[in-house]
Amino acid sequence: MTGSALLSALAIGIGVGIVGRLALPGPKAAPVWLTVALGVAAALLGSVTIRLIGLDVNQTLPLLLAQVGFAIPAVVVGVVTAGRRGTGDATGS
């Protein structure tokens, strides 16, 4: 993986993590560092996936689409699941 792919994954992940935290409604149980970490990890996963399916990571548009496509759902799921913690006891009632 090239340095530019890593830098773009870092930038996309940070951007999606921060914007996702601000854009999602409701109480924010997930800390900012968690949303940013999820965004960066998912964007890196998008870069790896592009590489594994055989596309060149130097092609900007497919790389960015994969990074954003992986980062947005990861941040949304992370924020939504963090907001559901601690509402009941261990028995589920």
Rank of each mutant, 00 (worst) to 15 (best):
V57Y: 11
G88K: 08
T49Y: 02
R84V: 09
Q67W: 00
T87V: 14
R84Q: 13
V40I: 07
V40H: 01
A71K: 03
V75I: 01
L44C: 01
V76F: 03
V79C: 09
G83E: 13
T81W: 08
Q67N: 02
I50K: 08
V76K: 00
V80E: 15
L52G: 06
I72Q: 02
A71H: 03
A90Q: 15
L52I: 04
L55C: 15
G54A: 07
V77S: 13
L61A: 15
G69W: 02
F70W: 10
A41T: 01
I50S: 10
A71F: 04
T87W: 13
L52Q: 07
P73C: 03
L63N: 06
V77R: 13
I72C: 01
G78N: 06
A66C: 06
A41H: 01
G78M: 06
G86E: 12
G69A: 03
A71N: 07
V68F: 10
I50P: 05
D89G: 08
T91I: 11
A41P: 00
V77P: 09
V79R: 12
V68I: 14
G88L: 11
L64H: 06
V77E: 12
G88T: 09
G69Y: 02
Q59M: 15
G54D: 11
N58P: 08
A71P: 05
A43L: 03
T60W: 14
T91P: 13
Q67R: 01
A42R: 06
S47C: 02
G88Q: 11
V76H: 00
R51H: 07
G83K: 07
A71T: 06
V57W: 14
A90L: 15
A42L: 04
I72V: 03
P62W: 09
L45W: 10
T87F: 14
L61S: 13
G46C: 00
V40T: 04
F70A: 04
V79D: 11
R85N: 09
R51D: 07
G69C: 07
A71Q: 05
R85C: 12
A43N: 08
L52M: 10
L63V: 06
T81E: 10
V77T: 15
G88F: 09
D89M: 11
G78D: 05
